[in-house]
Every structure is written in structure tokens, then in C-alpha cells.
Amino acid sequence: MLEARLEQSSVLKKVVDAIKDLVQDCNFDCNDSGIQLQAMDNSHVALVAMHLKTEGFALYRCDRNIALGINLVSLQKVLRAAQNEDVMTLKAEDSPDALSLVFENSENDRISEYDLKLMDIDQEHLGIPETEYGATVKMPSAEFQRICRDLSLLSESVAIEATKEGIKFSCTGDIGKGAVTLRQNPNVEKPELGTTIELQEPVALTFSLKYLVNFCKASGLSNTVTISLSNEVPLLIEYEMEHGYVRFYLAPKIGD
């Protein structure tokens, strides 16, 4: 059986908010490393991988691996009843047909109990190879979100080039073209506001802006975002949390 308690309901609320527009039905795999999720969007262009590690839970007990088949829209309806500061306890039996969610407010004078019906979702699991990326860029998540939104008004695709000068996002569309170049700027006082680039080799790839704008919904999870690129492999966009992460992989657009 599973029993997992989060001090702050906002952790799960924010994660579900970040991925609910990309995937609809997915398995929350509960095991002794915590709660994990991996799912592709319907068109198989993007993959999201999430991990809430055991250390992030005030209490975590999972006797055997449990897959919780959940419709994220339904889960979000239940999570709306939780205040961000409520303590949230998730409970499920082995091979469960429902997930119990209990929200307790900090004054301890309101306790809310919900049961969410579970689904049978047979989703194949994909192997994500460890990759030495050609370029790894760490930057403010708000900055990345602004760039993706601005360029998505001009074009459907963005070319991302990482060189030792910096990282350049450029696009061309019917109304014209645009480009944003960020230079390495560590910002020693406030590292989370800086941009750092680790370059093993120059990289140039093209991606769909619609997906990048979608991924940026996760910006509330972290002040910074890490973008990892290598030629000919999917882009990795990672939002780190204190005890876990949400990662998005996006397949590139390939020129003939």
C-alpha cells in the first residue's frame, strides 16, 4: 500500500498544472524512490518525465510498486479543493481502483477527503539514454518563457544555436523574422538571474515553438531552467524542484 504526505499541497498542484496540457492520461508510478511519471503527448513529438523523490515527502511508505492510472483533468479538479499550504496525504491499496487524497489546513480545523477513481493505462515505458550534451544552458525560466512567447508570434519553428559566443534563438515567419541572443553572464550576486553556457561542441537545431511555449507552463516550478542540446537528439528542458524535477524532451525538426 501507498501512504505519502506532502507538507505543501502546492508541490503536486504545480506539477499537475505544468503537465496537464501536454498529456491527459498517465501512470503515476509509486516505488521506493518516490512517485515517477513518464508520458508522451498524443503526437509523440514530446515526452515528459517527472519525479517527486521520497525525501520530498514528510512521510512516505510504499510496500510494493503501484501504478496509479490517472486522468490529469480529473486529478486537477480534486486538487483545486486543496489550498497551497494544506498538508496533503495520498493513500492507495495495492492494485487500487481509487486514490485517496486528504487535505488538512494549517489551523488543523478543516480536513477534506476525496477519492479519485483510477484508470487502467497500459503505457509503454521508453528508455531515455544518458546523454553527454553538446551544450547545456542554465537561464532564468521567466526569460526562456518570454523568448518562446515572443518568437512564437512570428513563426512555428525556432532555430537554436549554441556557440562559445552564447545561445541564439532565431525564427522566420510570414511577417518577418526575429532573433534573441543571450551571452554568458553568470551574475555572481544572483546566480538564478544569470545565464551560463557549457559548450562541448557547437549545436544547431530547429524545434516547434508550440511545444516550447507549452513546456514553459512549468516555469512556476523553478526560477531557473536548464536547456540541454545535442545535434540530432531531442532537446531536454529541465525544471528542478527541491526534491525532484519535471523534464520535457522535444524531438527536433529535421531539414531534408
Binding site: 508522451m40 509523440h44 515505458h125 521508453l126 528508455g127 531515455i128 531531442p234 524531438a251 527536433p252 531539414g255
Partner: peptide, 14 residues
């Protein structure tokens, strides 16, 4: 002309 590639061609099913 660029065309979109797909995740399963990079990550194989376990």
C-alpha cells in the same frame, strides 16, 4: 523543407 521527427525514433520502448 524541415519536417518534425518523433520521440520513439530516439528513445526505444523498454
Amino acid at each position: 523543407e524541415v519536417r518534425q521527427s518523433y520521440i520513439p525514433s530516439f528513445f526505444n520502448t523498454l
